[in-house]
Amino acid sequence: SGELCCSLPNPKNVHFESINMKNVLHWSAPEGTGDGVLYKVKYLVYGAGKWIRKPECRNISRTWCDLSSETSDYEEQYYASVKAFLNGMCSDWMETTRFNPLTDTKIDPPTVSVSSTEKSISIILTAPEKWKRSPEGESVSLLQVYPGLQYNVSVLNKKTKKRWFFSISNNTLVVPWLEPGTAYCVSAQIHITTPLLHSGFSKEYCIATLNDKTA
């Protein structure tokens, strides 16, 4: 269709929000336009020949567009762009900065499962999975994407209020020689050295060691 006159203010703050490589384009509505603004989106693989329109994000009124599928190859880098329309007017195309899924994604904390015996707790950590197209799709752990992935584990003794830190490369940790009948709270964080990335700490998972049967 022929281009309309582009005197509409531009969409603002066009950027990717990425968590575990689920890459969603976000933007803010143009200033002073109120309701009724529609948008269309295009994206480009950096260095590849052309911009590609995203049909599912054509004439949309929301201010986000999921481009995870189009940007799933994390060996590539990408740009995306948004244009606004209202009452026969339109804005300029507004672009993101260059998006590198490998370094620009945020990492969720690992999931933590804890079990206990009388004098020990066992911790199993699971790194989050990379975004996938469908639940049936092949699961790829972020461990495969970032081979140098490690875990920082915090163990809090609820009685003494003392907190210990462990740094482990594999995903299991057994803390022996604990006090029976005592509550311990565990949280964990993912730490990647190349590129330098880390998740926040997970919420705390608390468990009590069993009571001492001989006592």
């Binding site: 920082n152 915090s154 163990v155 907190r163 210990w164 830190f165 462990f166 740094s167 730490h191 050295t193």
Partner: peptide, 8 residues
């Protein structure tokens, strides 16, 4: 590698 208060 990373100093985070008390290390076990």
């Amino acid at each position: 590698k990373e100093v985070s208060s008390v290390v076990h």
